[in-house]
């Protein structure tokens, strides 16, 4: 459902430029338990968020990712790290691995490169 809503929101907002710019202070605006990716640096522009894996990001966010936040919740036996890959179905190289609470506002090398991600117990 969340995924459906996100998709609908994305489709709707794809036509409008730049919205929901994240505040400069405080944690990035990313729901708890989710991994979030923004089209713009510093958690700005359109956002995609997932609580599970996605082997092939939708076209509006794949290879347009510019900032990332892992707001996963840790616990015994829980997959709380996120590995981001440059190809679909976790193929190619891993561009970044984030533990819960870690955020990346910009990455010159991995900017606009992500295509898939998976949750794991470690990196």
């Amino acid at each position: 459902m969340k995924r459906l809503l996100a998709t609908a929101a994305a489709a709707l907002l794809a036509t409008t430029a730049g919205f929901a710019l994240a505040g400069s202070a405080g944690a990035a605006e990313c729901p708890s338990g989710e991994f979030c990716v923004w089209q713009e640096a510093n958690f700005g522009g359109q956002r995609a968020n997932w609580s599970g894996d996605d082997g092939w990001w939708e076209s509006w966010i794949s290879d347009t990712d510019s900032s990332w936040a892992n707001h996963g919740i840790s616990g015994p036996g829980i997959k709380d790290h996120v590995r981001v890959y440059e190809s679909a179905w976790q193929g190619g190289s891993m561009t970044i691995c984030l533990a819960p609470g870690q955020e990346v506002g910009y990455n010159g090398a991995a900017n606009d490169r992500g295509d898939s991600h998976t949750w794991a117990t470690g990196c």
Binding site: G26, Q102, Y106
Partner: peptide, 22 residues
Amino acid sequence: LFGAGPRELSVTLATGATVTAH
């Protein structure tokens, strides 16, 4: 849980990513 305010913890990796946390 994750903190608020400035991102005090920060490391820039060789890959170019600056990873931050509160």
